[in-house]
């Protein structure tokens, strides 16, 4: 189990993390989700030991590892830009962690066999003799993963693992990584700014903003019961109606009377529904909502009545 207790970090005048507390159970797949500058990567790097906190502790299985270096923590770290060793072959990259071991280094033949086995695991068998420059982005990312797994890490940390890939590859790799996490029984933490990625992959999502944790919960909780206006806005789409009411576009229905009048500005198809953009009559506030495409699309300039189905009300954000 990983515990982060009251961890703070500043870079010069910039407070990157304010008193972070977080528990991660063995076998969990956790996403650190937030916009850039939210401190998510800093937190990941502190857990790894690539960065050191100014205050607080990091515990692995109850043991304080705060003063241990990244090499001593036995974590697998996957970098956003892969950070493969360009001058080494794929197999040498994967074998690196084992071949630099100072005590208990396995014999050369064993290291080679292990590298091959890992390449098979990441479905790159036969590419061991290539150089990273000869691989596609998705393949490089899998080499980076195999290299990190070679040291049998007790924790796998991934910094924006899919950030540099195109949409299709990203989707495939995501699903594949989820499977790998489960079959290998890993404990994994990954950083992302993509809420869709976090919701799809993670067992639990940690939403961060301005160096603070805004909410920790399952994807369902974070999406359906956002703890703050920030979470509501950052995770999924949200409309702010007058009176501090937040409502998702798909949680709005059209009614014939008694609703909020909205002037339709734009209508377009989004999958199985019409996405309607409009303004609340008398306000300048933009509202977006979905109407089942089985119904006729609202006309431009028409005034329709809307009714929130599920809404959340937030107190003024404590600051």
């Amino acid at each position: 189990m990983i515990r982060v207790q009251n961890v703070t970090k500043t870079f010069g005048d910039f407070a990157a993390l304010h008193g972070i507390d977080l528990k991660i159970k063995a076998g969990e797949f956790v996403a650190l989700l937030g916009p850039s500058g939210s401190g998510k990567t800093t937190l990941l790097r502190i857990i790894a030991g690539l960065e050191f906190q100014d205050g607080g502790e990091v515990l692995f299985d109850g043991e304080d590892v705060s003063s241990r270096s990244v090499g001593e923590r036995q974590v697998g770290f996957v970098f956003q830009q892969y950070a493969l060793f360009k001058h080494m072959t794929v197999a040498e990259n994967v074998a690196f962690g084992l071949s630099v071991r100072r005590k208990g280094r396995p014999p050369k033949a064993d290291i080679r066999a292990r590298a091959e086995e890992l390449l098979r695991l990441v479905q790159l068998d036969g590419l061991g003799k290539r150089y990273p420059g000869q691989l596609s982005g998705g393949q490089r990312q899998r080499v980076a993963l195999a290299r990190a797994l070679a040291i049998e890490p007790r924790l796998l940390l991934l910094d924006e693992p899919f950030g540099a890939l195109d949409a299709k590859v990203r989707k495939d790799l995501r699903r594949w990584l989820r499977g790998l996490h489960e079959t290998m029984g890993l404990t994994s933490i990954f950083v992302t700014h993509d809420q869709e990625e976090a919701l799809e992959l993670a067992d639990r999502v940690v939403v961060m903003d301005h160096g603070r944790i805004e909410q920790v919960g399952t994807p369902e909780q974070v999406y359906m019961e956002p703890a703050s206006p920030f979470v509501s806005d950052f995770v999924g789409e949200t409309n702010q109606l007058p009176g501090g009411i937040h409502v998702r576009p798909h949680d709005i229905e059209l009614v014939t009377s008694g609703g909020i009048p909205v002037v339709v500005d734009n209508v377009f198809r989004r999958g199985g529904s019409w996405r309607v953009e409009g303004r609340i009559e008398g306000h300048d506030r933009v509202v977006e909502f979905d109407v089942n495409a089985a119904n006729p699309a609202p006309m431009l300039g028409e005034t329709v009545q809307i009714q929130p189905l599920r809404e959340r009300e937030f107190q003024k954000h404590p600051s």
Binding site: G49, S69, F79, A83, F85, A144, A150
Partner: peptide, 15 residues
């Protein structure tokens, strides 16, 4: 990044 990757894999400073 590459240096950090190396030390995260257990390499010493000299390695």
């Amino acid at each position: 990044d590459e240096e950090e990757a190396a030390i995260s894999l257990g390499a010493s400073g000299w390695q």
